[in-house]
Computed example of a mutant assay.
Amino acid sequence: WLMLQNEKPEDFVIATGEQHSVREFATLAFRYVGIELEWRGEGLHEEGVDRATGRVLVAVDESFFRPAEVETLLGDPTKARERLGWNPRMTPFEELVKRMVESDLELFAKEERKKL
């Protein structure tokens, strides 16, 4: 919304300026639904396993790699903060993950109701 209010069209990076791993994201997301992950293996053989059942819930899939994969990505929100007054830290990472999980659960519930 703030970008649309800008007087002239410009590109802005919308990011927190913080860096988090897929492992950290998955650990939090599963925790919000009551599942504790245990991480086993390394690199291409790393898996997130449900501690309670031993079932593999997260695994590396090379088909999702980008052609020019980079080790880390970190967005710089300085321009959006300075020109638009946007606060990239208004929603902490943990809260963002929680909201994403809640949204997915709501969508899942809607889809299940459609099946009835």
Rank of each mutant, 00 (worst) to 15 (best):
V101M: 10
F108W: 11
K115T: 00
F12E: 03
H45W: 01
E112G: 00
R83G: 03
A29D: 05
M3S: 12
L28Y: 11
E111G: 09
T78R: 14
P88C: 10
A26V: 10
D11I: 14
A52W: 05
F64N: 01
N6W: 11
V49Y: 03
E46M: 08
H45N: 09
A26I: 07
F64G: 00
L2V: 04
L2F: 07
Q5A: 03
G41L: 08
T16D: 11
T72Y: 03
R31K: 14
L4A: 01
G41W: 03
R55L: 07
P67N: 09
G48V: 13
G85E: 02
R113C: 02
E102G: 04
E69C: 13
I35V: 15
L116A: 09
G75N: 12
G75K: 14
L57A: 06
K115H: 04
R51P: 08
R99V: 03
E62H: 12
R40K: 14
F93T: 05
T16N: 13
G43P: 01
G17I: 12
R83Y: 05
R99D: 13
Q19Y: 01
D11Q: 14
P77E: 07
L44R: 06
E82M: 14
T27C: 09
A68P: 00
F65W: 06
H20M: 14
E106K: 08
L96E: 05
G43L: 02
E46I: 07
L107F: 04
D11W: 13
E82R: 15
A80W: 07
G75H: 11
F30W: 08
R55I: 05
E18T: 07
T72R: 15
D11F: 13
M90I: 02
L37E: 01
G75E: 11
L4T: 01
L107G: 04
E111R: 15
E18Y: 03
F12T: 02
E94C: 09
V56N: 06
Y32M: 07
E47L: 03
E10A: 14
P77W: 07
T91D: 06
L28G: 09
K110A: 11
P77C: 08
R23L: 00
T53I: 13
R66V: 04
A26R: 10
V101T: 14
R113A: 12
G48D: 10
F108I: 02
M90P: 04
S103G: 14
R99G: 12
F25L: 15
P77K: 12
R40L: 09
V49S: 09
L44D: 07
T91F: 05
F65T: 06
P92F: 11
L44Q: 03
G34I: 11
V101W: 03
R23C: 01
A109E: 15
G54V: 10
E47F: 00
K114T: 00
M90K: 15
E111K: 15
E36C: 08
Q19R: 10
P67L: 06
E82I: 14
E95D: 13
P92S: 13
E42R: 08
L57N: 07
T53E: 15
A68N: 11
E7A: 11
E46L: 06
A59F: 09
K79V: 02
